[in-house]
Amino acid sequence: MPDKEDRMQQILRMLLEMANGNFFFRLERSDREDNLEAMSVILNMLAEEIQESLVNQMHIRPRGTTKHIVQMCFLLDGQAIIKMTNQKACTILADTYSNIIDRPFESYLTKDSRDIWTRTWKRLNNKGGCDTSALLTFRTNENLLVSDNCYITSFKGIDNATKQTLVTIIHQTKGAYELEKELKKSIVNFKSNKQIPFKRDAGPKTSRPTLRSDDLNKIRNGQDFIMNNLEKDIPNLKDLALLLGTNEFKLKHGFKELYGVSVHQFLIRERLRKAKMLVQYSSIPLKTIAFMVGFKTNSYFSKTFSKKYGYTPSELRKKS
């Protein structure tokens, strides 16, 4: 078990990686109850928040077409020994190419991930050639953790006798919401393509306000105000801006900058999120739910819900 000095070194390494723009590393957690452990909790969560906010920023203001980058890939032989890897894997694992080659793949995994890998490997062997995926956590030579989905493809070699396996780790970057959407679409279905304001780039340029940090804070306060008053009529944009201490122009454009949707779209999206939970997990009448989340009529609620999720509230209720 690492001592205090080792743990401090890991935290410093993690900070350096973050300073270098690498937000996908994580610190290994222990059962200790001390300040270093608390710092590890905060750092891991902070890295997640920054990673996510960078992705969000990119999908609101797309700057390129790259969506996923191959972060690491490994070619394994029939005994799951690494036979080839890419340069990026060496960098991330903080190890040399010659050290990585001929090592068992599982030697780079955490204990929990080794169990997952063993089960996945057995399944691959039973099935013969096939594709699968698993969420695995790698331990770098500097004792930082990298957790990501691994896509595992098993196939026969050129001689048609030796079995080989390709493990690919894709790092989600720009447009990552597409992958997320697949994973979450039945649960938190709020990253719909319809909500991404790509149109802005297609038309003639419109002027945008310069948003300073106090402007951004006011817009975040606006988001909090809406979240806390979903069931109420929110003031019109002009009055809401006044209430927040900003102006309509900044509120309108700032909201799109921060959240990717207009104030009205955001309000409807959040009302529907809450409504969906109540439809799915309670027996409260649908009409009551509509009013509870701020819809004036049941028919408008049903229509908006259906447009967003692809099924009506009553269809969801029947299924639940």
Partner: peptide, 23 residues
């Protein structure tokens, strides 16, 4: 934070310093 607050009027966390307190 969002879906988890449905039909919740308030939340009081019981924490133990330092890990869950900072969490």
């Amino acid at each position: 934070a969002i879906e988890g607050s449905v039909l919740v009027s308030a939340v009081a966390f019981i924490v133990k310093p330092p890990v869950s307190t900072w969490l």
